[in-house]
Amino acid sequence: MVIVRRKELSLRERLYLPEIARGLSITFRKLFEKPITRQYPEEPLPKNEVTRGQPRLVVKDDGNIACVSCGMCEIACPAYAITIDGGETDRPIEREPKKFEIDMLRCILCGFCEEACPKDAIFMSDELELADYSRAALIYDLEKLKRPKSALQKRIDYVYRLNNRWRKSSSTS
């Protein structure tokens, strides 16, 4: 059993007023300190390549996407957010998606599509904001998903670094 005895207040403390003055001085000093609130839409969140934002398709330097519509990401996706309709193309890779849709309302930003992709075509971007006036507008098609490679370069490098480390550690064990 613990007996907690109340601390006897000194005369100074029982008078209230000196302690009130002390409290007031503290709050007055805080008045001039810089606010720590982030003014969100104007001051965006700090992002880095580790952030898993919404998946985007890489547009290579020649203007084409790397996707060959193999459907690996479609299968990997635990939320069934990806729908791919493949078709033929005259380019040497012979196949490309005619339709590539990600339902952003279903996407859980897990990054499995990025891991599954054998052609380094899909990567998680740092885009996190998602708002629109209808559900249909939030099903992103090819045009909305395309991003230039330069915009995703940091993430691509990071994924390569991560994969290399994983390979090394698995080979030694």
Binding site: T27, K30, L31, F32, E33, K34, P35, I36, T37
Partner: peptide, 13 residues
């Protein structure tokens, strides 16, 4: 505003 500044906030902006 005063309450905000005392609590490291911005208040109405």
């Amino acid at each position: 505003k005063v309450s905000a500044w005392m609590q490291y906030r911005h208040g109405p902006t």
